[in-house]
């Protein structure tokens, strides 16, 4: 009886956002903290139910796009890791900051000084990096040494028109051994040091979500974003006109549900729960 009551409450709680799902044609998924938790041996562990949830979306006829700020590996290597973990995911289903940044650098004839993770460097192989006229910063992790940050700073402070391109602006993320500082922290450090404003490529930039939607060929109001980052996933998607759910996995913290600026359309325990509800609504 008690269990039934609890289940009843859960269903009623779900109902609030599930009622608004009419017209949904596409799902955009964040990866880290939604599909898997990074770090440790093998590069991470799948979040229970997420492997099946991805299959379920693909079987439902909904369009699916993965939208990540991951910059610790090339898109190809990152996808290969997810495949090894058991996910049904392809390189051309993933929107990631580094390929987007490469396009921008080429368009604007920019020669980057890179402050990024060693494993991301191949993504920029085709670009001229001599005599740099901008700095590109990504989630460099252990490469965020004082020496490396100072080098990036000196390039910027020496430019007449300093251009700082940041692959995302996240504050932190969760790995199996704890929370880790993300690129946004070091972007802010360089912004403050040089009195510049970085251009963000990645979530929560509107253009980044728009390019993911264009790939799916759906309108913002037909898409729902699912992520663990209240500001970059949920806030960014909503700014773009999408609906957005926050999962209580990954970097989620209970205080996110009282965030002063961003309110998700719904909060779910994990991706599996979100997908169950979305797919059920689809068949009503």
């Amino acid at each position: 009886m008690l269990q039934l009551q609890a289940a009843g409450r859960a269903v009623r709680a779900m109902a609030e956002w599930a009622k608004q799902l009419a017209g949904i044609k596409g799902v955009v998924l964040d990866i880290s903290g939604v599909l898997y938790d990074g770090g440790g041996e093998g590069g991470g562990v799948p979040i229970p139910g997420s492997i099946e949830a991805v299959e379920k979306i693909k079987a439902s006829g909904l369009k699916l796009r993965f939208c990540t700020n991951e910059t610790q590996a090339t898109r190809g290597k990152f996808v290969a890791k997810l495949q090894r973990l058991g996910f049904n995911i392809l390189v051309n289903e993933v929107t990631a900051p580094a390929p987007a940044a490469c396009r921008i650098l080429k368009e604007r004839n920019l020669r980057p000084h890179l402050l990024i993770h060693d494993d991301l460097v191949p993504e920029f192989d085709q670009l001229d990096k001599a005599n740099p006229n901008c700095v590109v910063i990504g989630d460099a992790a252990d490469n965020f040494s004082y020496k490396n940050l100072n080098e990036a700073f000196r390039v910027l402070i020496g430019l007449e028109n300093p251009i700082l391109i940041s692959l995302g602006r996240g504050r932190y993320y969760k790995e199996t051994d704890g929370l880790k500082l993300d690129v946004g922290v070091y972007m802010k450090a360089l912004e403050y040091a040089c009195d510049v404003q970085a251009e963000v490529v990645g979530k929560p930039a509107k253009m980044f979500f728009q390019s993911a939607l264009a790939e799916m060929e759906v309108e913002p109001q037909q898409a729902i974003m699912i992520g663990d980052d209240i500001v970059n996933d949920v806030g960014g998607a909503q700014q773009c006109g999408m609906r957005a759910l926050q999962v209580r996995t990954g970097k989620y913290r209970p205080c996110d549900e009282q965030h002063p600026e961003v309110k998700a359309d719904g909060y779910v325990n994990n991706l599996a729960e979100a997908v169950d509800i979305i797919v059920k609504q689809l068949h009503k």
Partner: peptide, 17 residues
């Protein structure tokens, strides 16, 4: 040459938290 002071690191930690 020029080198980063404590300010950028403090600003980064402020942003993170």
């Amino acid at each position: 040459g020029l080198a980063l002071g404590p300010g950028p690191f403090v600003t980064g930690l402020e942003y993170a938290t």
